[in-house]
Amino acid sequence: MRYTIAMACVLSLFWLLNSGHYNAAMLGMGACSVLLVTWIVHRMQALDHESTPAHLVLRLPRYLGWLALQVLASNLDIVRRVWRRETDIDPVVARLPLPQSSDLGRVIYANSINLTPGTLTIDMGEDYLLVHALSGDLCDALATDEMSARVSELER
């Protein structure tokens, strides 16, 4: 129930921010759509601890800031590789360990790998990630586990 109410609040806020029209008719329609969506999601029983990760909110900004720097650095790296006369790539497929235990932590780790250009998660098993990297050193940088450690810290 707590999660349902939280989602209804978030949806209402989202509607209000997107609408820009605040007369009675529009607000009524907005309330109707929020109620409808909340009812559907409640019926699907899709809401739990995992789909509303309130416990992450405090730690997330710091991680996102670090991730943004990584994304910036790897973007510049790819730009350099693209503009070389001979495209400077040496693709590698490697298997990396996946220490995160919760699904959410795994998704955050895999998506962070995807978000930094140059590395890409192809497949995910119980305890490993199959990663495609544009060059060996990008892959080695991932294998030093800094990102993984940071995600584990986030997950705790």
């Binding site: 790819i78 693209v82 495209t87 790539i89 930094t116 250009p117 140059g118 890409l120």
Partner: peptide, 20 residues
């Protein structure tokens, strides 16, 4: 990069630059 890179996986990386 999307036009130059040799295989599908490398092209995904190139698209990642524009996407992020």
């Amino acid at each position: 990069g999307f036009l130059r890179f040799p295989d599908i996986y490398a092209r995904i990386h190139a698209c990642g630059v524009t996407e992020t």
